[in-house]
Simulated assay, not measured.
Amino acid sequence: MDLDTLLIRYFGTADPGAIGAETLASGIERCQVDLGLEQDRGKRFALWAMLYLLGSAPDLDVAFENEEDREAARNFMDLLAASEGNEVS
């Protein structure tokens, strides 16, 4: 799953700037439902990562049963924070 594919699937466009507020809200809701149903670890991570970027990701202990997946998510958050000049603890 790549970001463009996810954006098109949930929001109808690969251009985040073209997503209206109503479309954003309904796409986030659908993505959260799919995250809860998805069994594939890689796909779950991709859905969680997109939700995180949109400020709507569930807590790590809710999203991931596996500690390795939670650690990968923490690393993802740290990398994003570092790229923005912020630190996450």
Rank of each mutant, 00 (worst) to 15 (best):
E22L: 00
E65A: 07
K43I: 02
W48F: 11
N75C: 14
Y10L: 10
E38G: 07
S89R: 08
A46E: 05
S89W: 03
T23E: 08
G55F: 11
M1Q: 01
A81H: 15
I19N: 00
D69T: 12
A72P: 10
M50F: 06
T13K: 01
G85Q: 07
G17D: 11
D4W: 02
I19E: 00
L54I: 08
E68R: 15
L7D: 00
E38H: 07
G17L: 11
L79G: 14
N75V: 13
D15Q: 11
Q39P: 10
V62M: 03
P58S: 05
G85C: 07
D78I: 10
R44V: 06
G20R: 12
A57P: 12
G20C: 10
D69W: 12
R74E: 13
L37M: 11
A25I: 02
T23P: 04
E22D: 01
I8P: 02
I8S: 00
A72L: 15
A21E: 08
D2V: 05
A21K: 07
L7T: 00
G20K: 12
C31Y: 11
D59L: 09
M50E: 05
F45N: 15
E87M: 12
A49P: 08
T23W: 04
L24H: 08
M1V: 02
Y52F: 14
E65L: 06
A14C: 00
A25S: 04
R9F: 00
E87Y: 06
E84Y: 12
L80I: 13
Y10K: 13
A25Y: 05
M1R: 04
D4C: 02
E87I: 07
W48K: 05
D34M: 09
L35K: 01
L47D: 04
P16V: 02
E71A: 14
E68P: 15
E71K: 14
F64H: 10
D34L: 08
S26K: 05
E87A: 14
G36I: 05
F64K: 02
F64I: 01
V62S: 04
F45A: 15
D34V: 05
D15F: 07
G36W: 08
R30N: 06
D40V: 07
S89A: 15
R41H: 12
G42N: 11
A46C: 09
E71M: 14
W48S: 07
L79C: 13
G20Y: 09
Q32W: 09
M50R: 07
L35W: 04
F11H: 03
T23Y: 05
A21T: 06
A25W: 02
A81E: 15
M77N: 07
I19Q: 01
E29G: 06
A46W: 00
D78M: 13
G85D: 00
G85N: 06
D15A: 09
G42S: 12
N86C: 10
S56T: 03
A46I: 04
L7I: 02
S89D: 15
D69E: 10
N86V: 06
L80Q: 06
V62I: 05
L60A: 06
D4H: 01
A46Y: 02
A49D: 03
G12P: 02
G20H: 11
K43L: 07
L35V: 03
E22V: 00
C31Q: 15
